[in-house]
Design a protein around this nucleic acid. Structure first.
Length: 590
DNA sequence: CCCATGACGAG
DNA sequence: AGCTCGTCATGGGT
């Protein structure tokens, strides 16, 4: 969880020219900085920058990208959406928002928040846009002597600084560029204090934001006809109108209700479902799936209910409406992507891209002449634990294809016992019996176990932790007991924070490695026409012309070795990926 | 109309 | 095991 101090294992990335860019409304601007002195900015009048109409600035930016490979500095990656939409393979980025999330945790990272944070101003004083109320309208406002400065007279970023209403002149767009450069340099200075690895993480997180933009641009190839027939199997035919939809819904409900004659219940209401089940002689604490699953063999009504839920899920969430809304005329399923969530820093996706029900994966099909190179990381979390803890014995175990085999041998237990023990150590199992093996684990891998214990203790005490790559995970805002909570509730919440922290240092570090891998894959497969079309925590789907499938496989594998070596700064821990070529996502072995 | 909660999908 | 996310639904509040 701590950043390794001492001699840097990771060589500092070459700085390269930083080029702040902003795009607001139909206009944009960028300014070159002096690589030797990034604080010194160019002059937009000469060759030192460009400002004006968006299309014109993008033309110049495209040339600059090809010629100089600058590191674009943007308030958030979306400012580069214009370039990305044109298919420009933007190589390097400094995403101020992503770097802020890395440095201070949480998700809020608008430019006003970043500026206030770096300038040492209270965050609750940040001016917010919106209709002025009587209070703010009557409050005295300091004289505005520098109307073209995005920082207002109160020291805060103007609420409308990135809106077309304010950023409507060359002068103001260029002032925003200068502000972006200043903030990026301040962020870099703070990252430097955390060690060289944090700077590398900042670059990788920014690259992940570019991956997200391209995922949104390219979408996931879907065979709409196949998808519709899969939906039909669960949800029935496409309803002609509202009455038809109600009829189909009633038919689906009837298949459950028929098991309990003489009773009606709204199956979408858990309380009524519980009563319905009780009437059928099934008494449960809740109607959760894991509680009902063991009963489905003995009670037909339970089996019918669980089938109903599965079909209802398709009908409501992944049905015709979902296809209509998210699958474009080009057969691509598109949703929004974010490079990190507000917790440990995993990528997130909307439009169901991160939780497609397994049956629907049969509809994810490569386009004619293309295939998918599918790759997923094997046993990623225990391997990451070995890496971030620096435990030499555990690192030795990662040399095996199956990490649990040497662990089992060392503990003198069967493999399933070793696996449960390792997972219990990482995630804090409360039930079940990993007991004796857990104690052996402490003796066999004390360094790794100590890292987990320290994270747990930090969570208990509501102290923040940092991931291996430097991401701050706050623990003083979540899972906080009420003032009048009883001791038992407090203890439960403390323990929950402990488990959360223990999980965050593993899950967060795994997310960092995954994103570094994804960014490297993006770069490596581009020359053979490959595009990442899905990123799923430990799995990548790359869409590639079939004649380049073999080459792309090799590049995906090599990207892992490169990314892991750069991320970890050594080859002490082995990371493995299962890579295969498939036409349809469902053809991949699970 | 917003928000907490239950439920469930994925990793 | 345990943790994260997004989505849809209900129901109780404002």
């Amino acid at each position: 969880m701590a950043i390794a101090e001492g001699p840097g294992l990771v060589p500092p990335a070459p700085l390269g020219p930083l080029v702040p860019l902003v795009a607001v409304g139909g206009r944009a601007a960028y300014l070159l900085t002096d690589p030797a002195d990034p604080g010194h900015l160019g002059d937009a009048g000469g060759d030192g920058g460009c400002v004006g109409d968006l299309a014109q600035v993008l033309d110049a930016a495209r040339e600059l990208e090809a010629a100089r490979r600058p590191r674009w500095v943007v308030p958030e990656a979306r400012h580069l959406a214009g370039l990305v939409a044109e298919g420009v393979p933007v190589a390097r980025l400094w995403d101020i928002a992503e770097v802020h999330r890395l440095l201070v945790g949480g998700w809020s990272a608008d430019l006003g928040t970043v500026a206030a944070h770096l300038d040492g101003l209270a965050l609750d004083g940040i001016p917010r846009s919106g209709p002025e109320d009587l209070f703010t309208a009557s409050a005295p406002t300091p004289p505005d002597e520098r109307p073209d400065d995005p920082i207002g007279p109160d020291g805060y970023l103007r609420a409308d600084a990135l809106l077309p209403s304010w950023a409507d002149s060359d002068e103001r767009l260029l002032a925003l560029c200068r502000l972006g450069a200043r903030l990026a340099l301040a962020q870099r200075e703070r990252l430097g204090r955390l060690g060289p690895r944090a700077l590398a993480t900042a670059h990788a997180e920014s690259a992940a934001a570019l991956v997200c933009l391209e995922l949104e641009r390219d979408g996931l190839p879907v065979d709409r006809t196949a998808a519709e027939s899969l939906v039909q199997e669960c949800a029935g035919p496409r309803p002609r109108d509202e009455a038809d939809a109600a009829r189909i819904r009633a038919e689906r409900d009837a298949r459950v209700l028929a098991h309990v004659p003489g009773r009606v219940a709204d199956l979408r209401n858990p309380a009524q479902v519980k009563a319905l089940l009780a009437a059928a002689g099934v008494h449960v604490r809740s109607t959760r799936k894991w509680e009902l699953e063991p009963l489905r063999e003995s009670y037909p009504v339970v089996d019918a209910l669980l089938r109903w839920r599965k079909d209802e899920r398709i009908a409501t969430t992944y049905g015709y409406r979902w296809l209509d809304e998210h699958v474009g005329p080009d057969g691509r399923l598109r949703g929004g992507w974010t490079a990190c969530d507000g917790a440990a820093g995993r990528m997130t996706a909307q439009a169901g891209l991160h939780n497609l029900p397994v049956p629907l994966r049969a509809a994810v099909v490569a386009e004619p002449g293309h295939v998918f190179v599918r790759a997923d990381l094997g046993q990623i979390e225990p391997r990451v634990l070995a890496a971030v803890s620096g435990d030499p014995a555990f690192a030795a175990a990662t040399q095996a294809d199956d990490l649990y085999a040497p662990v089992a041998a060392k503990l003198g237990v069967d493999r399933p016992v070793a696996k449960v023990a390792v997972l219990a150590a990482m995630y804090g199992q409360r039930s079940g019996a990993a007991g004796a093996a857990l104690a052996d684990l402490e003796r066999a891998y004390p360094v790794a176990m100590r890292l987990l214990d320290q994270a747990y203790a930090a969570g208990l005490a509501a102290r923040p932790v940092r991931t291996f790559g430097g991401r701050l995970v706050a623990l003083d805002t979540a899972l906080v007991p009420d003032r009048d909570a009883d001791p038992a509730t407090r203890a439960a919440l403390d323990a929950a924070r402990g488990r959360f922290a223990r999980n965050a240092v593993i899950q967060g570090a795994a997310a960092e490695l995954f994103k570094a891998w994804a960014a490297t894959v993006r770069h490596e497969v581009a020359p053979v026409g490959g595009r990442i079309v899905l990123a799923l925590h430990d799995e990548l789907l790359v869409h590639v012309p079939e004649e380049h499938a073999r080459a792309a496989m090799g590049r995906v594998e090599r990207a892992l070795q490169d990314a892991a070596r750069r991320w970890l700064g050594s080859e002490a821990v082995r990371f493995v990926a299962d890579v295969s070529v498939v036409r349809c996502w469902a053809d991949a072995k699970g």
